[in-house]
Design a protein around this nucleic acid. Structure first.
Lengths: 335, 335
DNA sequence: GGCGTCTGTGGAACCGGTTCCAAGTTTAGC
DNA sequence: GCTAAACTTGGAACCGGTTCCACAGACGCC
């Protein structure tokens, strides 16, 4: 039923090779023939089957994006950056959302067979050497975002530096009782960012000769509600912190909520700083560490397209800058 | 280089037909042969090429989702519902984000040729008869979400009813000076939801014999910031409203921001009600109209898969219920 | 033993493009 | 006017699966 290249060829009185050449703007067709074929294509409303093209070209013309919790605001923003580049390319965007380790493994495995995707972007998920090996032997280029591996190109942000800056911001305001709320050290997905941000915090404290009270380290499942509970735990301490650094804006929102529930004034009685600078942070006037989320998506596609074209396997590594955005949830401590 | 079905056939000493039958669990293979072939498949680490399968089966095994502004919280939540069903199916999910009318038209057109997607879900974008015709003649099943067309199956919510309920909620609290902030009447994408919610509001006012002050209708680009400005305009009126119904939570957030900037207490001096019940609404204690976003995505895929399997072209139409979630941004007016 | 049926299997044809090669036609050069 | 080079063109082979058809052999029945 659908029109094929053979129908066009017959109708135009030429061979299929000629039609294909017209479709692909191959210059080895006379102008006269080109026009005749073009008219037939137009008249029959012919569109070449992408699937047949893919089989013939041995390319899938699609790029897979493997995202963990793709509804989180930070991930959404990265996806938007990715989509904006892919929309202008010849590629299609296939999205895989991961919320369990088994789903992750399934996705890692299935993308590693030839002819599934021409390239893969992995967001925030750390692949094992075994996974990397499978991709390599299947010849699938991979770019990592917000995670890294020695042999793969990746786009990362300086989480340690970000944690350092956030903490330094609080120290400069005069805080010494600074607490941290982050993800569990050992998550199912082995996230590193929360850990690194905490590491940066520890370094800043050390550089300023401030001792860290181990009780000030709280971790729990990612999310506003768990963070709210952790904040309450911190504020229940005999010697509660005067400032809290949350490893993400979402968690910072939970802290704000807890403060509100206790009638604690932010920033006068408690300073709160987040991380990510998602859209809502501006609305809530949250002081936070800005990281270029949209840009990270954008660059990852650029990188991927490059490593699809060049077979140059130089594992580039881009580190994007972060900076503190001072709004109104941080201030000098009262006394 | 990659292993093909021919390699497996040769290695196992059988024909390609047999290998294919083993792959597809066709019972017309002896147990003995099946085992031998399975072992070879395992040993060679053979994975059939999805592209070749697609060409042969004349199915693309992928489902397209055309979303407008796919970073908006409400759309993200719908996408999550869609993804959760597709992940368990044999289909791949291809996402197209639309932010301009030209991109919309391009997507409408390109998905309407055979062999691009097996089915299409369109979120919040109203297709023209012409578009619908193209999909029909290309034989592409389409399901609409949050938008409708007489000849296509669709999942909608009762926006008029939702607007009615929201307004009635305010009226029952004692408000009569109720304003509305929504999208422009004529958007590039012809969104109807804001209009319908306003329509519901008007009906509720009428049923309670409350006259509507035309100055109380404000519309502008979707987003928090424009809504903030519109709210200021409302509050600048000689006779400002005591309650504002925003056509979305995002816009309600802008209203809250404006109130805060003026030192107007919510809900004591001003009641605010939103629409959607996105995750942030709970956090901010926003009274709003809940609509089943995740569920709408889920159902749309069910519907689509059904209309891919059955060629039964009954244009089903599901209307999902909405209800007011009373939190703490609405209260009796002061006097 | 002859015949129909059922099971298991091989392989050609097909899906709809691209590309390479051979061949026909035109142009250029002497 | 002849030959070589350049330009067009048709069509077979190929990408890697699925499926249909033909056929061999086993089996049951009279």
């Amino acid at each position: 039923m659908p029109v094929t290249i053979y129908d066009v060829a017959k109708e135009a009185g030429v061979g299929v090779g000629t039609v294909s050449r017209v479709l692909n703007n191959n210059p080895r067709v006379s102008n006269e023939t080109r026009q005749r074929v073009s008219q037939v294509i137009e008249r029959l409303n012919f569109h070449p089957s992408p699937i047949a093209q893919r089989l013939s070209l041995r390319k899938t013309l699609s790029i897979g994006v493997l995202a963990v919790y793709f509804t989180r605001p930070s991930v959404v923003e990265r996806l938007r950056g990715i989509e904006s580049v892919i929309a202008d390319s010849e590629y299609d965007l296939m999205v895989y959302n991961v919320e369990t380790p088994s789903r992750r493994d399934e996705c890692f495995r299935s993308t590693a067979s030839a002819n599934r995707v021409d390239g893969l972007i992995v967001i925030s998920l750390a692949p094992a050497d075994e996974d990397v090996g499978r991709w390599a032997s299947a010849g699938v280029p991979v770019v990592l975002v917000d995670t890294s591996h020695p042999t793969l190109p990746c786009i990362i942000v300086d989480d340690i530096g970000g944690g350092y800056s956030a903490t330094e911001h609080l120290i400069k305001l005069g805080h010494t009782n600074i607490a941290f709320i982050g993800d569990p050290i050992h998550t199912a997905f082995n996230f590193h960012s929360s850990r690194d941000r905490f590491e940066g915090m520890c370094r800043a404290l050390k550089d300023h000769n401030i001792a860290f009270n181990p009780e000030y380290h709280q971790s729990g499942e990612h999310g506003r509600e768990p963070a709210r509970l952790l904040a309450h735990r911190l504020l229940d301490l005999d010697d509660p912190p005067t400032a809290i650094f949350a490893a993400s804006d979402t968690q910072a929102f939970g802290v704000l909520q807890a403060a509100k529930e206790r009638g604690i004034q932010v920033p006068d009685e408690l300073s709160v700083i987040g991380y990510d600078d998602v859209e809502m942070a501006e609305f809530l006037n949250l002081t936070t560490v800005h990281q270029p989320l949209f840009d990270s998506g954008l660059r990852s596609v650029d990188m991927l397209l490059q490593s699809i074209d060049n077979t140059d396997p130089s594992p580039a590594r881009q580190q994007l800058p972060v900076h503190v955005v001072e709004r109104s949830t941080t201030a000098r401590p009262l006394n």
